[in-house]
Each structure stands twice: as C-alpha cells, then as structure tokens.
Design a protein around this nucleic acid. Structure first.
Lengths: 340, 340
DNA sequence: ATGAAAGCGCTAACAT
DNA sequence: ATGTTAGCGCTTTCAT
C-alpha cells in the first residue's frame, strides 16, 4: 500500500532499464537509434525488443532537455518573424515546414516578439532573424552568434560569426518603377512608416529615383505610410485612392501592403489593373496566387532555398559564416501588365 | 601560447564562479534572482556585484536546457496553430504575445505542423492545441497530458488530464442564420471541405437548420467548400457568386473564409452589404477591424482571456483540469446590418 | 553569508 | 553484446 503507490513520476531511462533488465547504456543505444551505426556497439535484436516493450509499457518519453544538455543539440529551429501576418512570413513558415520534416527538426516561430531578449532565454540549433536593426544590432548579433548559429536576413550587414541572407535587388526595383512610369504618370508609393530601417529606405529610394528618371515630380500626397498591420495598410491605400486626383499606379514597398492596396482598390470599385496598377516587392507565394496575380519584384525560389539552408545549418552547426544571395527579377503579372 | 588559446567555450556558472572567486552556489543565487526572497540565503551586495561583473565580462548566458532539467520548468509556451494564415491564429498569437511579457515566458508557435509528433519531441510548460480530431485524438491527448500541461480547444472533448477551452455557441449560430433569412432568401454557405471534423459539421448544421426554419430550400449550388488556404477560399467564393442566380447572402463557417468572400465580392464589383451580406464565425480581431467590418458570431473577449489562462497554466502547472467556456453572441456589424 | 556536494536524465567513453 | 561510469550546467539542501 505504500511502496507501490509512490510518485507516479515520468519514466526515465533508468526505469526502463530496470524493467527490461538491462543497463541504461543499452536503453540509450536502442532508443536514440544508434543500433544501425557501424561505429557504435550493436545490440542484439532480442534485447532491443525487450527494451522497446518496456519503454512502450511505461510510456517512456525521452527528456529533450537532458538530451540537449548532453549533446548540445536541441533539434530546434527558431524563426523570428517580425510581422506574422505578412505573407512573407507565412511563405517562410510554409517552406520551412516542408523542409524540416525529413531532418527531424522542429521549427518554432517567435512571432511579433523581440528576438533580442527571447534568444538569450531559449536557444536552438539555428535561429533565423528576419529583421535586424542594421546599425544598432550589429554588435549584439555578433555576440549572440557565439552561442547560437544565427542566420540573419539583411541587405547591408556582413557575416560576422553569423550567416547573412540577402536579396540582391540590384536594378530590379528600378526596372519595376520604369515598368510603371512607361504607362503611368500618376505613380504613388505605399511604404512603412518605419522607413528609418534601411530596408524600407532603400525601397523608398527606388521610388524617388524612378520618378526622377521619368521626369515626374515627387508629390507629397502620393506618398502614404502605414503602421505595421494589415488594417493600417488598407487604410493608407484608401486614403491614397480617395483623393481628388488619385494615382493610377502604386509602387508598394512590400507584397503585404500591395495586396492590401489591391483589396482597397476593389473595395472602392476600381478595376485592377484597369483603373489602378499595383507593384509589390518580395514576390511572395500569396501575391503570386491571388487573383489578379500580383506583379512583384523579388527573388524567385527564395523560400525553398532559404529553408534548405536553414536545415543544413541546423544539422551542421560548424562551417564558416556565409552570405546567401538571391538575385531579384521583375515578375510581371496581372496587377501591372506590360505596356500594350 | 597554449594555455591561453584553449577552447573558447561558452562561459558556465563555474567559469563565472572562478572569475569572481566564489562558489557556484553563490553565482546561482545571484543570477537566478533569488536574492530578494526571504527563505533563500542572502548574498552580500559586495559579492553580488563581483559576480555580476564577472558574468558580464565573460558574456555568461545561463544554459536553459540545464535549468530545465533541474527545475522541470522551461518557461516555454507552445502554441500549435493549424492554419497560421487564419486570423483566428493571428489573434491568438497577438493576445498571447501581450500576456506573456510580464511573466517571463517565451511563446513559440508550431505552425501548420503536426503537433502529435512535435510535442513528444519538444516539451513546454504549457501547450495549446487549436484543433484536435475529437474522436481519434482523445486517447493520445490524455496520454500526452501526463507529461505536458495541455490546453485543448474543442467543442466536444471533456477534460481528461488536460484543460478544455470551448466556445459555447449555443443558439448564436441560429441567430446568425435568422439574421440573414430575415432579409434574404438566397443564402449560401461557404465551408471547409474538411467537414468531417465536428467543428465544421456543427457549423454547417446550423446553416441547414437555419434554412429549414425559414422554409428555404437547401440548394446544392449554394454550398461551396474550400480547401484550407486563402486562395482556395477566395476561389470558392468567386464560384458561388459567378453563377446565374447568385446568392445575396453568405453564411461563412469562419471569419477567415468570410473575409475572403468579402474580398471576392468586391473584386466582382459587388457592394457589401448592398449586393451581398456576409456573416462569419469566430469574431476575430481582423474581421472586426476590416472595412466594412465583419458581422460575426463568436465569443467576445475570447483571445485575451485565453491568453491569460495559458499564462496562468504555464506558471501553475498543477491544479485540476478545467473547462473554460466562452458564451457566444451575434455581433452585428457592417457586412450584414440589421434589417431596416 | 557562503561553500560543498548531490543529483536532474541522458549520452558516450571505456571496460568487460 | 552489454555494463560501468563520468560528466553536461545548473539548482538546492545542508553544512559551516
């Protein structure tokens, strides 16, 4: 009545070993799947069976924390995605989900959270950071990279213990602007209020230069900013389109806001692209799949290659920091077709 | 040239202890913030300072896996969100993000992934599961609940070692249908193809019964199903609206698909709610914030209360399994206003 | 106020 | 083929 009713604690490797009448080492060999490897000691099929039975019977689950502390590997991939509702984030998530499956890695998303504090608390075999403050974070990233394998998406940072993923926009954004100004004279820009970040300022810069090349004036009322979320983007687009002399084309600094702009236009009973042409940046899956499909400038094949890279890094922690570059191109689709 | 250049390994509590000239216990006391507690031994301000300095100088970061193995707490909250692009998921994520901050818990999202395998691999202080197969998973959930604190969203499951979060739809879906049939006779339904799940069949059932109550016929061409993603939902709505005798109202079985329907209608130059009324289910933030705002039936205050509950559970692992119920109501907004 | 030391569950040498 | 054993980095009890 006493010895049997003690703590119904979770089964450990030791419990299993006792039940199977073998040592903990044997259990470990069986349960961590080293049986097949040539360098490791073998286990007879008979004992292997006994061990598996015991484990099953006791409902044994390996303690991942204990494994991690011993091996230094967590089989975890962390994705810090700054704006989860952005199709860019969803595309990353989807591609990663497909890529990790065979590798036995669990992808976890850190959403709308500050990675700066979270990463210190919770490590992973590889951490992807989708947005860093290019100036302010450079040092912090280098420091974090000493204890985590970091992959940072950045246009300007150089690898420094961490890998850098970069999309080589090159002249493609200029092409996108030229694509619009070839047909339109009233070209507006829809961009994030957070244009301090180099990412956005580069994109906004392409807009300004594009106007210059075409000999068009930069009109203050043709530049609208939004504030992070979808609603805000939608409203910014409505404001842009509801003015007396509305633009006939919008250069949006992300697919996310471009999609919101298309919805806003349709809400105002405008035809896209008839009444309004829209170009996005990023070439997301969602933009490609929507109807009308979004003309966008961005890398192609980006998400899958990124996902593969992350998986490779998770397994092979070492290796020198790399730069992964994705050349961009203009992908002309329905929302802004080529000039007739 | 040799003794100094050895392994630049990550600093541990021992390294810090040596550098500060104290014991590892003292370092632990200082760095795990137990200094203030009354029951714990105190540390003189002087040594505390020395320890902190040493830790900073060495770039010490506590090893979370080691902590977890010792204390049994990971300070991790896991959210399994089946369809990340669903505004319901985004609402959960956002509410949780706000709620965890003061508690020092890191929320991690398991997106579009099979929680059944992932949870076994990676534990957390509390795991939220947004969709379980009510029949097939009942036993698995009970088993997993023995090693994880589980919170399951389910209309029909009863707590069994795990907590259940449930929205008490009650008669509110019927109200929503009556709301539509009071004005419309051509009421369509837009629902997930995966109607095997009780969640969807209940919702679809409300549609069927609503038609019956109003004396309307169930027309096959007024029921459209979609396949999981946004694009598919959008296309299903377009199909529904493009037929010869299109519906003037849509009963959508989620806010997600309702929003897609509104976009589709606007794309077809239909006025919402003038030409088409739309009602969603779920009462998401995104539906509430969109323009025109979405009439929806669902719980109010759901997400914040859910987030609070999850945080409470993460801190206080014990406590008997609970049912958390959220009574629903019909929230009449722009996409389906009240009858004149 | 501080330190010594026992272990959490697991893996990996090394021994048998 | 299987067992013994030494830790991984940390917290926590018990001495001092």
């Amino acid at each position: 009545m006493n010895s049997a009713s003690v703590s119904p604690r979770r089964a450990t490797i030791r419990t299993v070993a006792q039940a199977a009448g073998v040592s903990t080492a044997t259990v470990s060999y069986v349960l961590s799947g080293r049986s097949g490897r040539t360098d490791a000691p073998g286990v007879s099929t008979e004992t292997e069976l006994r061990v598996r039975e015991a484990a099953l019977g006791l409902g044994y689950r390996p303690n991942q924390a204990a494994r991690t502390i011993r091996t230094g590997k967590s089989n975890l991939m962390m994705l810090s995605l700054t704006m989860l509702s952005d199709p860019w984030s969803l595309s990353v998530s989807k591609a990663v989900g497909a890529a990790v499956a065979p590798a036995g890695i669990t992808p976890m998303i850190l959403a709308d959270t500050d990675w700066r504090t979270a990463i210190k608390r919770q490590g992973a075999d590889v951490v992807f950071i989708d947005a860093a403050d290019e100036e302010g974070d450079a040092q912090l990233l280098a420091e974090l990279a000493r204890s985590n394998r970091l992959v940072v998406f950045s246009e300007t940072l150089e690898p420094n213990g961490f890998d850098v993923v970069r999309s080589l926009a090159g002249t493609s954004m200029d092409q996108a602007m030229d694509h619009l100004t070839a047909v339109h004279t009233k070209v507006a820009c829809l961009t994030s209020a957070n244009s301090l970040r180099s990412l956005n300022s580069v994109r906004y810069g392409a807009y300004v230069r594009g106007l210059e090349r075409a000999g068009l004036e930069l009109r203050e009322n043709y530049v609208a900013t939004f504030d992070g979320d979808e609603i805000s983007a939608y409203e910014a687009a409505v404001t842009l389109l509801r003015q007396p002399d509305p633009p006939t084309a919008i250069f949006a600094t992300s697919d996310f806001v471009a999609i919101a702009a298309v919805h806003a236009a349709q809400r105002l009973r405008l035809d896209v692209p008839g009444d309004l042409a829209v170009v996005g940046i990023g070439n997301t899956l969602q933009g490609e799949a929507m109807a009308p499909s979004l003309t966008s400038v961005g890398p192609s094949g980006f998400f899958d290659r990124l996902a593969d890279f992350l998986v490779r890094r998770a397994k092979d922690q070492s290796g020198p920091p790399q730069v992964l570059e994705f050349p961009w191109q203009l992908l002309v689709r329905d929302t802004a077709p080529a000039a007739p």
